[in-house]
């Protein structure tokens, strides 16, 4: 679950934790240095009351950025734009904190050739790189997980891009988290089965109270997808 600017992040994190969220992701897509100080504080306060894995991304350019976030209580950091421009960052973070703490976030958008290109800067810049190849390279460089967002479906809640998640999942041997497009329980069922994703991330569906985490999990369970139920 990703917390965009939809309320106090610490409060939301606590609420989703109570609803049975499996992990939390804080993505600061603006990521100015002022915001990073705020983020460190948000992470520290969240980690004192929420006891599930916490991934934090946005503006991580060097190992020291990752260290501040991890020492404030995050379990994993996600790298995106800076890793595209300097892929060694993935290896540096992975060597320092372990592959399990190094998430490669990829924003992918369909191109005209039937594939997907990597976009950076919060989805504004087309890097002209093949997203599936980049995912495989990220794994080779030391990433322990891929957070894969479809820019075509992000925010519109009409379903995940299952062809994208399937392609990335088959090209890698690390967990792939699908993001972008989850609006209905069917979408989650589809991406976790046909889409071959290991996990699914959602924001709007929970922020706007369409479903609670537990209601969504109940639907997944009915469809035979193994889930952790807490409520």
């Amino acid at each position: 679950m990703s917390l965009r600017d939809a309320g106090d992040p610490v409060e939301l994190a606590a609420r989703y934790n109570e609803q049975g969220a499996d992990e939390l992701v804080f993505l600061d897509i603006t990521a100015s240095s002022d915001n990073r100080d705020t983020m460190v504080d948000v992470v520290a306060r969240t980690a004192r009351q929420v006891f599930i894995p916490l991934t934090v991304g946005g503006g991580i350019r060097v190992v020291e950025d990752a260290r501040r976030i991890i020492h404030s209580g995050a379990d994993k950091v996600s790298v995106n734009t800076a890793a595209v421009h300097r892929p060694a960052l993935i290896t540096e973070v992975s060597n320092e904190f372990g592959a399990q703490a190094c998430v490669l976030a990829i924003d992918a958008k369909r191109n005209t050739k039937g594939g997907w290109n990597v976009f950076t800067k919060g989805g504004r810049v087309d890097e002209g790189i093949d997203a599936v190849e980049w995912a495989a390279r990220g794994e080779a460089l030391g990433a322990g997980e891929i957070l894969l967002t479809s820019m075509d479906s992000d925010g519109v809640q009409t379903g995940f891009d299952c062809a994208l998640t399937r392609a990335v999942s088959r090209a890698t041997k690390i967990p792939v988290i699908a993001s972008g497009g989850g609006g209905l329980p069917e979408h989650f069922i589809e991406v976790l089965t046909d889409g071959e994703a290991d996990a699914a991330l959602a924001a709007s569906i929970f922020h706007y109270g369409t479903y609670t985490v537990d209601q969504l999990k109940a639907e997944l369970e009915k469809a035979g997808v193994p889930v952790r139920r807490t409520a």
């Binding site: 499996d22 592959a99 399990q100 322990g144 997980e145 041997k173 690390i174 967990p175 290991d198 996990a199 193994p226 952790r228």
Partner: peptide, 12 residues
């Protein structure tokens, strides 16, 4: 080698 690795996530 053929397993998705690390084993990362919730399991029973």
């Amino acid at each position: 080698q053929d397993a998705r690795c690390p084993h990362m996530g919730w399991n029973e």
